[in-house]
Amino acid sequence: MDLGFFAQYLINGLVQGITYALVAVGFTLFFGVLDVIKFSHGDVLMLGAFTALALFLGLDRLSTPTWLSLTIMLCLGTLTMALLGALLCKFLVLPLKESPPLNTLLITLMFGSVIRESVRLFFPNGSNPKPFPALLPETSINWGNLNLRLDSVILIFTGALAIVLTHLFIQKTRMGLAIRAVAQDEETARLMGINFTKTVLMTFALGSGLAALSGISTGLYYQEINFSMGLMLGVIGFSAAVVGGLGSIYGAIVGGLLFAFLQTLGAIWFSVPAYKDVFAFTVIIMLMAWRPTGLLADRSAERV
């Protein structure tokens, strides 16, 4: 294989990997503060993309300039999903805090199913794939076999930027400090005067906003979205977070890139494209059997 092909795979893999990492960061955040898995995460992502699409359809009628549409879609899309994430947390996740973890998992799984079905049934013609507008510049440069699309580069940078900002937010701000404190030890954090509920809601808002962002990026990249896209992306994002090590942002990034890398490898090896997912998941399941707590997280012992 020549260098051009290789670079092409690398760029495509990076776009994918960053998207997965964005989803995985959400899983890691939720698990960090509340030890829960929000299985509706993928569907929140999908709903974010559909919200952006609906906004675009509205703005298009008013013939808004592209840059403005894109800004509004991004801002409103992420904000709405952030709000939805916080609401989900307040009304479905926090009330179940004392019940078996399985119940939280089920309730979020079912909430995801409700979002998915609602979009399928109530979005006009929602059961079919929807074209997503190509709002990013379509310029591309050719170097031999490499076709470098400008939109790929923009998406990689936006995604990376979002992750870096999240990291800075958690490391440098007061709210971030509260999030880390709650993740360390809920009781102590409460005693130190941290508003637990507010912190958890904020974390859920943040994670869900990131999911919306990755949903919109996916739409912009493939120029098509559908109601069931969230299921697969959610499972992939969760796998990425788990393989990296739940609770660690670096783990989420490593996991996301690793998954994209495995898919790319699968796509090169197998002639049938669908096998790339079969391959990637098989490797992930094996990795989980090998290191159940992930590649980067420290092995935490249960308190007895």
């Binding site: 973890p101 499972v235 788990v242 997912d277 079969v278 998941f281 098989t282 399941i285």
Partner: peptide, 27 residues
């Protein structure tokens, strides 16, 4: 994998298995 992991992780493994099996049968 299910024995080595717990709760949520085991859930993920079965979900992934279900999706995989369908893909496998389809292609």
């Amino acid at each position: 994998p299910i024995l080595r992991t717990k709760g949520h992780y085991a859930a993920l493994i079965t979900i992934a298995f279900g999706i995989l099996l369908r893909t496998f049968l389809e292609v």
